[in-house]
Design a protein around this nucleic acid. Structure first.
Lengths: 208, 208
DNA sequence: TAGATTGTTAATCGATTAACAATC
DNA sequence: TAGATTGTTAATCGATTAACAATC
């Protein structure tokens, strides 16, 4: 019954969503795969193929309804769930994420912060109190946290992941540059900045 | 002459590099594709295939020399270039990047900061002075900046990209959630956090 | 020598691109 | 009706996996 959607397609959906949202705010009602593709540098065939995975919602000879398509993609991505995040590790990166305003517009909200450093515990970042790691299980339950964000050094990341899983989070967003082991039932997305930067270095080295 | 390496392979090389560096620090001299694969959850065949792209440096029946392989990957990725970064936009994210210590260990260094906000210009972040955008061209030349990092809001990102290109950067690392147009000679890597987070949301929604 | 492990070729799998009938 | 654009099937392309000879 449930169609399997490729990761490549899933990774393009946020790009479509972002563009459709912008177009909606500009009062654009209808968009063709050709126009959308030109904005994002993706072929129109690719876009139609991606969208067709979820059923037909374009109109032949006309295009796609911007608002409807946007809502549909939002639902496919599960953005209507208003996921609640807890960030573990309130260093420079964790602090920046706690202040990242774009989350809200995608339906995510940061509801808890944790740090092992006693000098940080008790302070507030963006109006959210920083808790000690020892209170994690209780607070994650009481605040109905869905997603654990790991922003601690690599050598502490696995321990934090284990705690988050034990505390009952439904997914993990990991910024530590290390391969984490978590149960296969817990979706895990890695955000390793060094990969992109190394790839950039590679391509720069290739330029004649 | 120059073999074309797939993006998928390039994106795995930093993972190999990171693991080899750790193993070297643990005094491990020789590693097999099997062991490396187990650490990273990548099949040994995949690893051998990736490495074979650059020539032979394993020993049949033995494995790979950790130090040699690490050095070789570093060179392929161009990490020995000691690239110099300039960050544009010293908000929460830009500030976090300016303080990100892992860059140095990969051979990158942040040498300049820019912001359009007058209240920030002149202050220091991690010992680096924040300059006004108007001085960008001159400072990028005098500080020999290689890579421009874009950490401004989406609606300012294209303008910043144009300025960086005009100032002569060799590559762009973009954190703004927007498709940038830059000359094809300038490598561009996008680091759009909302893609990973949306993918996580998707997978969490699929769990029965 | 026997066991281990690479490098490479062939087979498979999956994603992208091309083509076009359907239809607004 | 003629032009535009989708949705889908077929063709192509590229990446991963499997198999195994070479060799330490």
């Amino acid at each position: 019954m449930k169609k399997i959607i490729s990761q490549a397609t899933i990774d393009r959906l946020p790009l479509y969503f972002r563009t459709l949202r912008l177009m909606e705010s500009e009062e654009i009602k209808i968009i063709s795969s050709d126009e959308l593709g030109r904005t994002l540098d993706i072929t129109p065939e690719q876009i139609r193929k991606d969208l067709a995975t979820f059923g037909q919602f374009g109109r032949k000879g006309i295009g796609y309804d911007v608002h409807e398509l946007k809502e549909r993609i939002s639902n496919i991505l599960g953005l209507q769930n208003c996921w609640r995040l807890a960030i573990v590790g309130v260093g420079h990166l964790g602090g920046a994420l706690a202040n990242y305003t774009n989350f809200a517009s995608l339906g995510f909200s940061v509801v808890a912060l944790f740090d092992k450093n006693k000098s940080v515990v008790g302070s507030e970042v963006n109006g959210i109190k920083v808790n000690s790691i020892s209170g994690m299980k209780r607070i994650i339950a009481s605040k109905s946290v869905d997603i654990g964000v790991i922003a601690v050094p690599a050598d502490e990341a696995q321990g934090v992941a284990d705690l988050l899983v034990a505390a009952g989070v439904k997914g993990i967003w990991n910024f530590a540059p290390i391969k984490l082991n978590v149960p296969s039932t817990i979706p895990l997305v890695n955000e390793d900045l060094s990969i992109g930067l190394s790839a950039l270095s590679y391509h720069m080295s290739q330029e004649s």
